[in-house]
């Protein structure tokens, strides 16, 4: 095991790459849950984003259209969840699980119908990397951030934007009020249900962008179930980051680093003991449980998270 394998530029660049889809899902989770709707369908939103992004890239050869279609697909899935959770007052966990299964089944089904056993086409239009010119030439720093994908920068910018929106603007305050105490928000004239609709829709768009990043920036193809639970890691990052965008960024970087380490330490050994790299991958999940249980800080969700809202005297 060498120092380079632990904090080398390659590991840190990989950390940023691996953190990005988790971060986008986590940001979606923050927006949705701050408004009081639990959205565990983020995993499904990512998956439809990944798949329909590839289909659109294949058919239109346009990256912009592909991203639009990907986010549209995620938005539609999220909208279904919103109707179920907000209007039909379904159990939000059951609805979310159903949509995750639906997304997995639907994308695998259509993948087989469209592309059979041969896989998605090899010449897909992909999201380009951004070369930072002179910065890319700086040793180490340039190796880490000099040639990251465009969506990595979009995700980082969204952290700032959403953090400012939630905590520095009036609509952001209203969204949080709806998630903390919908009755009070309603009393002062904030439209609870529309606010929640917009928030859930936004969460679907964000997660789908994360999915499109996986298929159009990283893999340049689609494989069944390719999100591999990153939507759930995003939820973990949201919780570990205490339901704030900045916290979600820190958590996503930490989780991304854990995964980057598990790649770079493959086959490495300390003394004669081989490093059990797979166990490093359990880090996000163990830390999240500890965080929610209050062993590592104390993570508290919005007070009305997951509870449907009824206006008085109306069923």
């Amino acid at each position: 095991m060498t120092l380079d394998q632990v904090i080398g530029a390659g590991v840190l660049a990989a950390t940023l790459r691996l953190a990005t889809p988790i971060l986008l899902a986590a940001l979606g989770g923050v927006v949705s849950e701050r408004s009081g709707v639990v959205n565990i369908a983020l995993e499904g939103c990512m998956l439809v984003g990944a798949f329909f992004g590839v289909v659109a890239a294949d058919r239109t050869h346009s990256v912009v259209l592909a991203l639009a279609v990907a986010m549209g697909a995620g938005g539609i899935l999220a909208a279904i969840h919103a109707v179920a959770a907000i209007h039909l007052r379904s159990d939000q966990i059951v609805s979310g699980m159903a949509l995750n299964i639906l997304a997995l089944g639907l994308t695998s089904y259509l993948d087989y119908q469209f592309y059979g056993n041969t896989g998605t086409p090899a010449d897909l239009a992909g999201v380009p990397d951004v070369s930072l010119g002179p910065i890319a030439a700086i040793p180490f720093v340039g190796d880490v951030i000099g040639n990251q994908n465009a969506i990595v920068w979009v995700a980082l910018a969204l952290v700032v934007v959403i953090q400012a929106f939630l905590f520095r603007t009036v609509p952001g305050l209203r969204l949080r009020a709806v998630g903390e105490h919908p009755r009070a928000a309603d009393t002062v004239g904030i439209a609870v249900r529309p606010t929640r609709y917009w928030a859930v829709l936004a969460s679907g768009l964000l997660a789908a962008l994360g999915g499109a990043y996986l298929s159009l920036s990283v893999a340049h193809s689609f494989t069944d179930g390719m999100t591999g639970g990153r939507g759930f890691i995003g939820l973990a990052a949201m919780i570990f980051g205490r339901w704030t965008p900045a916290g979600a960024l820190v958590a996503s970087l930490l989780f991304g680093y854990g995964t980057a380490l598990s790649f770079s330490l493959q086959g490495a050994s300390i003394g004669s003991v081989q490093v059990p790299v797979q166990l490093l991958s359990t880090l996000p999940y163990v830390l999240t449980i500890l965080a929610v249980a209050g062993f590592v800080g104390r993570s508290r969700p919005p007070a009305a998270d997951g509870l449907p809202y009824e206006t008085e005297g109306h069923a």
């Binding site: 007052r89 059951v94 609805s95 949509l99 299964i101 639906l102 997995l104 089944g105």
Partner: peptide, 21 residues
């Protein structure tokens, strides 16, 4: 595709979730 059954399964679950309908 055998995945059709996952689609059916998800729809079953979803209807139950939205039992109000």
């Amino acid at each position: 595709s055998a995945q059709l059954v996952s689609v059916i399964e998800a729809l079953v679950l979803f209807v139950i979730a939205a039992e109000l309908i």
